[in-house]
Simulated scan of single mutants.
Amino acid sequence: MENITQLKALLGVPKNIVITTHRNPDGDAIGSSLGLYHFLNKGGHTVRMITPSEYPENFSWMPEIEKMVVYDIDPEYSQELVEKADIIFCLDFNALDRIDKLGDLIEPTKCHKVMIDHHLYPEGFADFLLSDTTASSTCELIVDFIHLLGMESDLDVKIGECLFTGIITDTGSFRYSTSAKLYRIVGELVERGVDDYKLQDLINNSMKEKHLRLLGHCLNNRMEILEEYNTGIFYLTKQDYEDFDIQRGDTEGIVNYLLKIKNVKMAAFIMEQPKIVKISLRSKGDFSVQEIAQKHFKGGGHKNASGGFSFQPLETTLKRFKGVLPQYRDKLAAAVI
């Protein structure tokens, strides 16, 4: 991060700070927001968190998550907080359109803006930028940020648990996007008192009965394997959403089950939601799904985890996805796992 000295000086005096993250926040978005929130509170700042939409219920155990302001529920209070902010931290997104109407509020403000993110192609709206596409997660970068400030002694258990949570979820419990540096970071967090076993249990072993029944439905009734393209597909219909009472976060992680099949190198989860069809893509090894998401489905993300959307009907979107696969047949066949 360039001009870290200037940012450190700004943070040396208590400020009104807003932390925001992307719509439909996942574990990394929530963990990085809460971790930074608790860290900045130690510096005597007045800190508020705003998310464009509600967070998944399965993260409700995280410390002080209830203090997150949801723009969709309270846009007027969100606007008031943005207008009063001296500094706005933008976490786990690389463009203001990723936070919808909240981005329209933030863009014209004169306050200092800080982006901390690990996605490709960050927009240039921030005054301070910490961007690393090789990082496992934004939570990993928050640890880097605290070290850059020379304030690692402030990393306590509460901050560490939040950041460890985002690292677990964005790496699929350390199955991908790992590095020697990441393991040094999580080792540091454990040394500071983080109970990684407890966190793994809270994150991975807190399903409701309906979650397992939904997974069974996907495996038994909504799975298609395209062997010639080393690709697996799950899909859900609007009726499935009603039958299983699918709420925000209920489908998290299901797409990864396709990658358990030996020769499947790319997995797609295509979900028919009320207004759009959402596409979640995952891959193994050196095959990148980022290009498919960006080029064909107005999305983006990372090499092994990306997403997009379509305004076409589910059947049309499925056909369209299958239609692009011949372009990637050779790359998928040659991909090294």
Rank of each mutant, 00 (worst) to 15 (best):
C162Y: 06
N204S: 13
Y197C: 06
K331F: 04
D156I: 08
V190G: 06
D286K: 06
F297I: 01
D72K: 13
G301D: 11
M68N: 11
T169K: 11
M115N: 13
V324T: 02
K319D: 13
L318H: 06
G323Y: 05
Y37F: 15
E123I: 05
M62I: 13
H302N: 14
L130K: 15
E272R: 00
N3H: 10
P313T: 03
L212T: 02
D156W: 09
L259D: 09
N94T: 12
C218W: 00
A293W: 02
Q79A: 15
M223P: 06
V277C: 02
E80K: 11
R222P: 11
Q290Y: 00
T134K: 10
I254C: 03
A267R: 00
Y37S: 04
D243F: 02
E152F: 05
Q79Y: 13
F311E: 10
K15E: 06
T316H: 13
S32G: 10
H22Y: 01
D28T: 02
R282F: 08
P326A: 03
L129Q: 14
D243H: 07
L236I: 03
K210Q: 10
K15P: 11
I168V: 12
Y121S: 12
P25N: 03
L105G: 09
I337L: 14
S153E: 13
D92Y: 02
Y121N: 14
M223C: 12
G150W: 08
K295A: 15
L314K: 00
E76L: 13
Y37H: 01
L149I: 06
L102R: 07
V255R: 03
F244V: 05
I261R: 09
Q239P: 01
Q327R: 04
A126N: 11
A334Q: 14
Y37G: 10
H302L: 04
V157R: 07
N220P: 03
F287D: 00
L40K: 02
F321V: 00
K331N: 07
K238A: 02
K319H: 11
D97R: 06
K331W: 03
K262P: 12
M151Q: 09
H119N: 12
I168A: 08
F297A: 00
L120P: 07
N16G: 02
A180W: 03
L105H: 04
D117A: 10
K42Q: 15
E107M: 11
L202N: 11
V114C: 06
K303N: 12
V114E: 06
F39C: 08
L332T: 10
G232F: 02
L96R: 03
E64D: 15
M271Q: 12
N205M: 13
K278E: 07
D195Q: 07
L120S: 07
R320P: 04
G27E: 05
I203A: 05
S173R: 07
K303I: 07
T237S: 09
H147M: 13
G124H: 11
S310W: 00
